[in-house]
Amino acid sequence: MSALTADQRPSSTLPHVRIQPARGLLDLDLAALWQYRELIYILVWRDVTVRYKQTLLGVAWAMFQPVATMLIFTVVFSVMGKIPSDGFPYPVFLYAGLLPWFYVSQALSRGGTSLVGEAPLISKVYFPRLILPLSATIAPLVDLVLAFVAFLGLMAWFGILPTWRILSLPLFAALAATITLAAGLWISALYVKYRDVGHILPMLIQLWMFVSPILYPVSKVPESWRALYAMNPVVSVVEGFRWALIPGFEVDFTMFLPSLGVVFVVFVGGLIYFRSMERTFADVI
């Protein structure tokens, strides 16, 4: 019976945990993350399930939202605003950019609020806190896949056939996930301490959309600003998505380098900041 388990097991086989003040800058404790991998899985599953519970359309929303946005933006920016799209059909051009952007904005707002949103949990149960922004970053990937299916329909409508480049899409999706996780680490940890973040975050997301080439092509950005522009990692993601999805779309891959550097710095910095703040989450939240 259950009674056997505890008493007859020698101590050596019992999990041993040493509780002590955390030290070191980057003590990731990947072992703990691995031990709690099922929690990551189940939180992702929860986020996806809860999002479409008690809705009529269910997961169809994940397709309907970007498609509707694409239609509206096409009317406003292409038909009325005459924004160029490097010679590609504007709806396809736009949707290929909206696809990763919907993911980034969603993962960002969910990841940023992931700690404060689970405050009761943090003050009552132990688990590696990193799991919260991490699972919040993973969950919207499901929506991304669904929105991608809708994109295939759009391509069929315009009679465009995908090329082998489409295989590189997971790579760019991974880049998008890394970017949002990097930002999410900072934002979620800052949010615990400063509730201002709740007001800043929606503004930040909106601003970020306009400094990314979603509605307009990179060619519209003045040459002298390109170097600065390339620091925005979302530029790489959007350009990467377009390159992978639209046959004949050309990308200057040297533009990717500065943004990869930015992502790396923000990501490592975010990990260090998150880990150092983690010690006080339960006391401050």
């Binding site: 505890a6 041993h16 945990v17 509780i19 002590q20 003040p21 149960v125 132990y126």
Partner: peptide, 27 residues
């Protein structure tokens, strides 16, 4: 002891899985 918050100094060694009934219904 349940690792929700960290000690400022000192250590504790824990052998075995810890769970607590104060978590009833949390989550």
């Amino acid at each position: 002891l349940s690792r929700i918050t960290q000690p400022t100094t000192g250590t504790a060694d824990i052998y075995g899985r810890v769970s607590s009934l104060l978590e009833v219904g949390t989550g």
